[in-house]
Write a protein that binds this DNA or RNA. Sequence first.
RNA 1: GCCAACGUAGCUCAACCGGUAGAGCGGCUCAUUCGUAAUGAGCAGGUUGGGGGUUCAAGUCCCUUCGUUGGCUCCA
Length: 648
Amino acid sequence: MAISIKLPDGSIKEYESEITPAEIAKGISEGLARRSFGAIVDDELWDLERPIKKDASVKLVLDKDPESSRFFRHTMSHILAQAVMRLYGKEKVKLAIGPTIENGFYYDIDIGETRITEEDLPKIESEMNKIIKEDLSIERFELPVSEAIELMKKEDQPYKVQLIEDLIEDTGAEKVTFYRQGEFVDLCRGPHVSSTGKVKYFKLTSVSGAYWRGDENNKMLQRVYGTAFAKKSDLEDYLRMIEEAKKRDHRKLGPALGLFTINYEYAPGMPVFLPKGTEMLNQLLQFSREKHVEDGYREVSTPQIMSDALWRTSGHWDHYRDNMYFTEKEDQQFAVKPMNCPGHIIVYKSSSVSYRDLPMKLFEFGKVHRYERSGVLHGLFRVRGFVQDDAHIFCTREQIQQEIMGVIDFVQKIYSPFNFEYRAELSTRPEDYMGEIELWDIATKALEDSLFAKNMEFKVNEGDGAFYGPKIDYHIKDSLGREWQCATIQLDFMMPERFGIKYVGPDNEEYQPVMIHRAIFGSVERFMGILIEHFAGAFPLWLAPNQVSVIPIADRHAEYAESIAAELKSRGFRVEVDDRQKSTNYKIREAQLMKVPYMIIVGDREKEGGTVSVRLRSEKDLGSIALQEFMDKLSQEVSMRRATSIFE
RNA sequence: GCCAACGUAGCUCAACCGGUAGAGCGGCUCAUUCGUAAUGAGCAGGUUGGGGGUUCAAGUCCCUUCGUUGGCUCCA
């Protein structure tokens, strides 16, 4: 039977019978065949040696193609598993899963009591290099599920047996694929490169524990992480990039810039903000407040500690207790608030509400406390006490769509001065949910429709919603590429129900409003951590805790420096005068390291001419300039909330 | 919470096989008055995270506890 293959350039090749991508490549040129890692056959990643049996469009995957890593990293994880089996004994090593991830791969392994530590990695790496040198060819084969289970039982690989059984159950699979390289055989969907010699540049990066199936009730396996690239230079670039990114880490930069400190002895998980950090925080809050007012929110302030009765009604008692802090006085039980919503319900209930009052948009910088397990705390990103820029929109069912879309626009508005990339996710009903399924479906659809209406791309996280409703989350990446949730939009029919809140409709009947929970920064602390990493400490002028450093050259210029600073301060700028007995170079270096946006250097020349000499943190030298002119420009830069200097 | 590594001065890091805890930066004092990324000298600073144990002797070995880091799980 003849087969016709369509190539990316549009040409069509005819073959007499089945054909492999490798053969197609060779037909074009030997060099192309050598450089190919695999192929994409009708949108499916396809091994080079895997026969194509019907008409298809075929694209060869070369090292420069992003898909190439899927091939060699997957093979890399098999090489890792093979090396571990050789080193620790094939009968002792039970393999779980070994997928590719964003910048590399891992394999979850069970070796009983034996522990792999980071010191073992070089040993494993050298065994892997041996396997690469052996250039074992990689063979793909299919087995009917019964034989596959038989094989894995014979090999004594219980996790693989379970995986196959699940495949049968979940997808009704009748056949599964295996890959063999030398003495190593693994259940695997692929794809892989054609031999172990085809991958070269890798490094094992870390080991950690990981639960089988990601469930903490299951056994903890050992996970070995690695990274691999097609070219040596790519691997080196990646490792260098990681090193650079570590320098941006807010946990290092924050304290170094005098923004915050975390006292691990006295307040684990509770960051302490220093004067400069607090200044910055205040700028963020002021910005947020301004935007909220523009958008029709009313600010409120609700208690830190409230009676257990409130939390029982809200459902937190049953669904969130493990994360809450409690306190007791006069035989009464109180909880430190983990969320602001019940407080806002009290505000809502304080007066009778007409449909004319809706949507009612209540907003609060609410400090919440949530117990987090010690192992998850992480700088400003994961803490036990934090401020949310939290708001609750009470509206009618008819208003839901419009309000959600309004919030989506609002997120855009708040994020726009920072120029970072973010991603949206839709989370649906979890197992531990409250309320009726029909309501959940309506709520989920409302969120989904809004995202579509706003042309937002999003990923769906099944079962990841809050216990009271589905949600849209926004995620932002940190300097090391880890993603952190910031903004969140959650729809809630439960809370109004449980508290029995009502509004009076045009027909004089009572109706139940719907509640939209939403936060834009999410946690102000987390958001600030993101900003520290995003800007590597070189904040936009409007956020910078110290906007201008005035540096007198010698003592006799101190007075003039002070007068400059006084003028700047009277215009509302945040200024420091560095009149220490240090050399000019020293003081400039210091201001530079603190990433102060502008340095004003004054000496005899400036004093006589009544000017200032300005240096930017980018090292650009503006030379002498009139103070008035400089201040006018700065005012503009601040009021525009520019991310970059107005002088560049 | 779980797996692994780690915890020495405000910060970064030394201290061999168990043998009197040391340096740079920062701080303070003095001198220096300086033109766009570090002036020089001197001084102070530590119950080696806490507790227990082994030992003639513990920063070093063992146990325990608290915390940090990288993951897992969970989440803003």
